[in-house]
């Protein structure tokens, strides 16, 4: 699903975010991406989303080399990838329903489809009763769940999350992680960047640990 081949990413100014990074993550896998801040976790996710481009090497997503993807094909790629952000990236000028519906509206779904899918996604994250509310009235954990609902509403094959539990207490964090596990169990490939090692220590998934843009352990597995 995701394959990095000798990827280097250097930001203007000289900071080497990723250094000759190679790894492969098969379909249906779930992994945690760990490392200190500045280790290159966010850069790695941004390369998959083509928010940044590699200086050298190849990034393959679902068999497609995205490091050279023409700009006009980027939206198509992003529709196949669900992303959850630490700061949710919700829009406070519209309801929860409309926030979650956004990827479907963009993808041109019929109206009925949108209604059903949005409700299914909201049901999954346990917020079906909040669809008419403005997300600003929700708690941090609820907002994050709206963000997750939006990420999965389009039924992506790949789900990325950048510090999804960054601002949440352990109880809520565990709930969020459990949600990700559920998506993985039905076949979604899940990659979660986090520095919350205590949270993932008990979970049986492989780790991708980055240090200064390089992989230090691919498979600190608890399996």
């Amino acid at each position: 699903m995701i394959q990095f081949e000798q990827v280097c990413k250097r930001y203007p100014g000289g900071h080497q975010a990723l250094n000759n990074l190679s790894f492969h993550m098969p379909h249906g896998d779930m992994r945690f991406l760990t490392g200190h801040s500045g280790a290159g976790k966010s850069t790695l996710l941004k390369l998959i989303m083509v928010m940044e481009r590699a200086n050298s090497g190849q990034v393959l997503v679902d068999g497609r080399n995205v490091s050279k993807l023409p700009a006009r094909h980027i939206p198509e790629l992003r529709r196949k990838v669900g992303v959850v952000f630490q700061n949710h990236q919700l829009l406070f000028d519209r309801s929860v329903f409309d926030n979650v519906a956004l990827p479907l509206v963009i993808a041109g779904y019929g109206h009925r489809d949108i209604g059903r899918r949005v409700r299914a996604a909201l049901d999954k994250v346990g917020l079906l009763d909040k669809e008419r509310q403005n997300p600003i009235t929700l708690s941090g954990g609820e907002q994050q769940r709206v963000g997750i609902a939006r990420a999965v509403v389009n039924k992506p094959k790949l789900l990325l999350a950048d510090e999804p539990t960054g601002n949440l207490d352990p109880q809520l964090s565990a709930e969020i992680m459990h949600l990700f596990e559920q998506f993985n169990q039905v076949g979604v490939t899940v990659l979660i960047a986090t520095h919350d090692l205590s949270l993932i220590a008990r979970m049986p998934y492989k780790l991708l640990s980055l240090r200064q843009g390089q992989l230090v352990s691919a498979g600190g597995s608890h399996e």
Binding site: M49, M51, R72, P75, E76, L77, R78, R79, V83, Q89, L90, L91, D93, L102, P103, I106, A107, R150, N154
Partner: peptide
């Protein structure tokens, strides 16, 4: 809003 729309695959 534009940023979010672009992130979730909105075309230009």
């Amino acid at each position: 809003e534009i940023l979010v729309v672009k992130l979730v695959g909105g075309t230009n």
